[in-house]
Design a protein around this nucleic acid. Sequence first.
RNA 1: GGCGAGGUAGCUCAGCUGGUUAGAGCGCACGACUCAUAAUCGUGAGGUCGAGAGUUCAAGUCUCUCCCUCGCCA
Length: 570
Amino acid sequence: MARILITSALPYINGVKHLGNLAGSMLPADVYARFQRLRGHDVLYICATDEHGTPAELAAASSDMDVRAYCDEQHDIQKRAGDGFSLSYDYFGRTSNAPNIELTQHFAAVLEEKGLIEERVEHQVFSIDDDRFLPDRYVEGTCPHCGFERARGDQCDNCGRLLEPTDLKEPYSKISGSKNLEVRETAHLHLIQTKMEGKIRAWVDASTEWPSLAKSIAYKWLDEGLRDRSITRDLKWGVPVAKDGVARPGFETKVFYVWFDAPIGYIGATWEWAEANNGDWESWWRTDKGADDVTYVQFMGKDNVAFHTVSFPATILGSEEPWKSVDKLKAFNWLTWYGGKFSTSENRGVFMDQALDILPGDYWRWYLTANAPEGSDSAFTWDHFQSLINKDLADVLGNYVNRVLRFNKSRFEAVVPAGGEWGEHEDWLAGEMDARLKSAAENFEAMEFRKAAGDVRAIWALGNEYLTRAEPWTKFKTDPDAAAIGVRTALNFMTVMAKIAQPVIPNAAATILDALGIAEDERAWPQGEAKTLLTALPTGQSVEPPEVLFKKIEEADIEAWSERFGGAEG
RNA sequence: GGCGAGGUAGCUCAGCUGGUUAGAGCGCACGACUCAUAAUCGUGAGGUCGAGAGUUCAAGUCUCUCCCUCGCCA
């Protein structure tokens, strides 16, 4: 039994995430976590909301709420959305909670001891009327490049260029609108990443289990040269720049920048998990305390790769403490909305809460896994969604379950029938099943989710093929025993179909396994002799058809949803 | 403008270190079956693998040039 630590990129606290975010980190991490649990491994799946930074403060302000209260509310909303999609986090923590604050301050102290953090004086915009500095998005003004009048302090939304707050012309405070601003000098802590370059490159070189997307991004950053970066901001909301509860002199009104504390949140959330479950977080994160046998797997969108392959490692490796660093890293491209971006303001795309409003989580889980943006960006379209759901879930899987159980109910009184002999059709099924099961397991293991879903679907299809060969409905007329072996094998195979479906569509799979009377502790990934697997159900066991597993998506649904969320015309 | 990822059947995509008639699912056509959510099973038609040139006995698969799409950054 292996120990596998899994983290998903942390969703930012600012609002419910859209399907692209789900598809690119939380969902595949969950599918992988579920698969590895079914294989009998000791899995710890950790996620958290990333709560610091100016977007959270500004969103809170515009909702007229205290930041903490805003984050409390948003955290609950995201937790519920995750529950709706059956995301099986062992813990869904918060970067604003105590463990992460302590860890962030710890890392800062250690890095400073190692000479990797320095105080440097910067020029920042200060608002006299607001009596505070205006970092990042707290100041807006005219873009010096394109003349856009409402460029933000960190970036111009019009031309896309990155800016420094002091670059803006005609700057004004986002808080009060005051133009009574001046540039003042203030000290900030800087992480000296330039000193870490060689160490990080060596670590990347040694990381053999990263896909090419991750490696190429990491090397791109290293080749361009790392920059020393400011890791503090003039804000109230964030991890205080303090040590042992005492603020660093001159930093009383400053906090660590979200960029620095967010990835530490993986560790912080594990600590939260430990506190809530009487667990030992250090055995997952400290190689001197038991984590040396842990395999750490990270899931993220491609925009996050640099932070996970360079920035966060700078913190981890720079500390020279025995922290666990990532072993396998799975990066996703974008799920697009008809080839373009998801956009709240332009009514393009479905957000997690809206998706659940329309259909249960399993429908989305299947689509987003079978159509995962792995090799390249992949486009969501309603037609494609309808096609996958109706064909794969309703017709191939759902109809199989229904046809077998209903036939069994009408001919064999809804119990697993006895009688009949194992024969050539059953041999055929066993052989096909073996080959496909092996392939499916390999693809899940390799985190090739599209291929894994293809294997799962192919195994479902095997059931229907088998029935065509065994044709119990014909045999029943002349030889009920010959029909019985067909139905019995079909029922046994249904247990396999459902077990392998568990990582992707856990709820529907549970419904099937419940109907078949499979105990909770007998639902592991199918392993062993095919014939044994196909003869496991005790004859006489009651098996009742469940409610329709998957409702088909009608044309009228597609029209209504296209209208509501945008579609081809967008 | 630089960098990155791509351009493979109508659609969505597979095709590792170059090697027999380029694959899958959907869609389409035809056939079979009737237990089932008008579901299922089988067969088939469809591609000069973005364009051009080169390397090689042999190239979606390597090299160069060009065109187009998406993203990141100037």
